[in-house]
Computed example of a mutant assay.
Amino acid sequence: MNLPIALFNGTVATTNGLYSIQDISIEDAKNLVEKHGYISAIGHKATADILSEVLDKNVKMHRVQFQQKVGQIAIVLKLNERPPEGSILDKAEMEEIGYKLKIMKRIE
């Protein structure tokens, strides 16, 4: 089963299941997206802009109700700090806070 890589702007369980989450390098994330393709479930423009740069892809903001399938991998942009309630950060603010990429796989 060759499912596209889902792109998320947070480590969110999109449906019931068992998930594995680990850090992933930018290079490994780029290789996975290149090999499997991707589907954007990014709900914020600044996140889409950052992922476009780091993955060398044209990632669009795409607010959808996405359900990750068993065996499907997601690449997640996870901020290093939780922003204040109600905040909508721009790209510069996100880069100032810092972020890591995570790989999130739905196991069952």
Rank of each mutant, 00 (worst) to 15 (best):
T11R: 01
A92T: 12
I26M: 03
D23W: 00
G10I: 01
V64P: 04
V33R: 09
H36D: 14
L77K: 03
E96N: 12
N9W: 02
N9I: 01
T47G: 02
K30D: 01
Y38P: 05
N31L: 13
R106H: 06
I24N: 02
M61N: 02
V64K: 11
T14E: 02
V76M: 00
A48M: 06
I42D: 06
P4S: 06
D90P: 10
L77D: 04
H44Q: 14
K105D: 00
E85H: 12
Y19N: 02
E85T: 11
N9E: 09
E85A: 14
K60N: 13
D90V: 08
H36L: 14
D28M: 08
K45G: 08
E27L: 13
Q72Y: 11
L32W: 11
T14H: 03
L18G: 01
Q22S: 15
T47E: 10
H62F: 10
A6N: 00
I24P: 04
P83Y: 07
L79K: 13
G43H: 13
S52E: 00
G86V: 04
V33M: 10
N31I: 12
L89T: 06
G71C: 05
Q68C: 11
V70N: 12
L55R: 07
E27F: 12
T15A: 13
L7H: 07
L101W: 06
L79P: 05
N9G: 09
Q67I: 03
K91C: 07
N2A: 09
K102M: 14
S25M: 03
S40H: 04
M94D: 02
K105H: 09
A74S: 15
K100V: 12
I107L: 15
D28E: 15
E95Y: 05
G98Q: 04
H62W: 05
I97F: 00
V12C: 07
H44T: 09
Y99S: 03
E27V: 12
F66S: 00
V33N: 03
N31Q: 14
L89F: 09
I5S: 02
K105R: 15
P84M: 07
E95W: 01
Q22D: 13
N16K: 12
G43K: 11
T15G: 08
S40G: 11
D56T: 11
V59H: 05
E34Q: 14
T47S: 15
M61I: 13
I24F: 01
V64H: 00
L77T: 08
P4L: 03
G43L: 06
L32C: 10
E95Q: 15
L77W: 02
D90W: 04
S52K: 07
K91E: 13
G37H: 10
L51E: 07
A48L: 06
A46R: 07
A46S: 15
N16H: 10
A74H: 08
Y19Q: 05
A13G: 08
G17D: 01
L3R: 08
R106Q: 13
K105F: 01
I50L: 07
L55M: 05
S20L: 10
K45E: 15
H44S: 09
E27W: 02
A92P: 00
Q67V: 07
G43V: 03
K69Y: 11
E93A: 14
M94E: 01
S40C: 10
D49H: 06
N31P: 00
R106E: 04
A29Y: 03
L32S: 13
I24Q: 00
N2V: 12
K102S: 08
G37P: 04
K57S: 04
A29S: 14
K45A: 14
R106T: 05
